[in-house]
Every structure is written in C-alpha cells, then in structure tokens.
Amino acid sequence: MQISTNQFYSNTASLLQKLTEKTNDIQTQISTTKKYAAPSDNVVAYQQLATIKQSAADNTAYASNVSLAQSLLQQSDSALTSVESDLTKASELVTQANSDTLSDAQRKTISTQLKSVMDDLASLANTRDARGQPLFGAATGDSAVTKNPDGTVSFTGTGTPASIPIGDGASIQPTDSAEHVFGGIATPGGTGDIFSILSKFTAALDAGGSVTAAAGEAGTSLSAALTQVTGVHGAVGARAARLDLVSSTMKTAATDLEATRSGIEDTDISTAVIDLQKMSTALQATQASFTKLSALSLFDYLK
C-alpha cells in the first residue's frame, strides 16, 4: 500500500501533536500534583471527588461540634466535682451543728459557713462555659440561678439545654440544667432543691435552740442531693466516653476519606516521572524519524 506525501505528513504531524499534548499533560500533573485539570478530564472521578469532599466537610463540621461538646462536658465534670465537695462539706457542718455541746453563737458561726457554701454552690451553678454562656443554663434564661435579696436562690431558666449534632441523625446533650442538678431532690418534707435545704437549716441555726430535728432533715436531704449530683456526674462521664468513641471514629473516617481522595486525584509522582521519560523518548524518536524521512529524495535512493 502506497502512502502519499500529504498523508505521511498529516499522520506524522498528528502523532507528534498527540505525543506533545500527552507530554504536556504529564508535566502539568507533576507540577500541580493533580491528575485532572478540569471536570471534563474525568467526569466520573470528579463526581467521586465531589462526594468525598462533601463528606469530608460534613465530618469536619461534626468534629468541631464533638470538640465543643467534649469541652463542655469537661467543664461540667470539674464543676460537679466541686459541687460534690461542697455538699460533703455541708453535710459535715450539719453533723457538727447537731452537737448538744454547742452554744447558739457557735451554731450561728456554722450558719455563716453554710451560707458561704451556698454562695459557692450558686456560683458553680452560674459557671460560664467556653462560649460565655451559662454552663448549667436551661433552654431559656441568661443565668442558671438567681440569688434573691432575702438570700434565697431560685432557678432562672426552664427547659432542657439544647443538644449538639455530632453526626447524621445523632446528637448529644453536653450539659445539664441547674434545676436538674440542684433541684428535684426528695426530702422528708417533699421535693426541694439544694439551696432551699441549706436556707431552711441556716434559718434554724440562726433562730437558736435545739436543731436536732432540723439537722436530721437537712442531713437526709443533703444525702439525697449528693446521690443525685453523683448520678448526674456519672451521666456526664458516660456522655464523655461516648464522645471519645465518636471522635476516634471520625478521625479514622477522615483518614480513609483523604486516602480515597488522594488515590483518585493526586499524581503519583514516581510513576508520572517514569511516564514522562518514556513519552519524551517517544516524542524525540518520532521527531528524529520524521526529520530523517522527510529529508529523503530520489537521489538518496539512487546512491
């Protein structure tokens, strides 16, 4: 089969163009470290990358929420530890005040100490979290509790604190309301809260005389309060453990997503360099052959 001069030039030019484009593509892949310069280079790969990048963005957002929730639970853990310490101290003071050997003046001194404990508890209840919001705040209210002019303490907000989303269809409540922590305590006289329990007993101490009955009631109530706070504290620990697991799972997922993305999008430099060398060699050889063949004439064949 004979090949015309025009066809020879056309075929060779087309081959040189393809080799040059392929060489330039590989050079671009190496310089940018990306396999594809535009969606049209590989539509399927770009669709996969879009899905992966959206999943990675969602994972990052949820990871941020998990980190926030962990911070709030750590603060709750610390605050509740202090609350438990204050309740233990209050129970000890109640027991001390119940001694028959104490005078009214001495009991008033214990009353002052208990009022100090109550102030500390109110301060802990109004702890601000890392966002500047009340750690034990409810769904409503700027603060968790309010100290009234008469020295009593009341709960400010109502409702359950908002949960934080930590995954698709999953959320966690990072804090508890002050009412849940400090209120709803079963006492011999009904249901009360830590502040009213302490206020009632300090009033009995300030009044003077025997406090045996009042001390018995206060002791029982404070024991119930400590049990309740310990239960809340345990729930905080359980939620923290859950977040640790979620965080670990997210880190693994993030690593897997990045590996998948890299496999689809990133240039394998070592392989690309070898391909570039092969392509450059083929291009040079084709150029050399074209130059040699195009220079031939009839006289060359007659030699």
Rank of each mutant, 00 (worst) to 15 (best):
I197M: 10
I197P: 01
I197Q: 03
I197S: 04
I197E: 04
L198S: 02
L198K: 01
L198E: 00
S199N: 12
S199A: 14
K200Q: 15
K200L: 05
K200E: 13
K200Y: 03
K200F: 01
K200W: 01
F201I: 01
F201D: 00
F201T: 01
T202D: 09
T202S: 11
T202I: 13
A203W: 01
A203L: 03
A203Q: 07
A203G: 04
A203M: 02
A204D: 11
A204S: 15
A204V: 06
A204M: 07
L205H: 06
L205S: 07
L205P: 01
L205T: 07
L205N: 06
L205D: 06
L205G: 05
D206G: 02
D206W: 02
D206E: 15
D206T: 04
D206P: 00
A207R: 12
A207F: 10
A207L: 12
G208Q: 14
G208M: 14
G208I: 13
G208C: 12
G208A: 13
G208R: 14
G209F: 06
G209D: 06
G209L: 07
S210Y: 03
S210N: 12
V211E: 08
V211N: 08
V211W: 10
V211Q: 08
V211I: 11
V211K: 08
T212L: 10
T212C: 04
T212G: 10
T212F: 08
A213N: 12
A214T: 03
A214K: 02
A214G: 04
A215G: 13
G216Q: 12
G216S: 12
G216K: 11
G216A: 12
E217Y: 04
E217I: 07
E217D: 15
E217T: 15
A218P: 03
A218S: 12
A218K: 10
A218V: 06
G219N: 11
G219H: 03
G219D: 06
G219S: 14
T220I: 04
T220L: 06
T220V: 04
S221Q: 11
S221G: 11
S221M: 11
S221E: 09
L222H: 07
L222W: 04
L222E: 05
L222A: 08
S223C: 02
S223Q: 14
A224L: 08
A224S: 15
A225E: 06
A225I: 05
A225P: 05
L226V: 03
T227A: 15
T227Q: 14
T227N: 14
T227V: 12
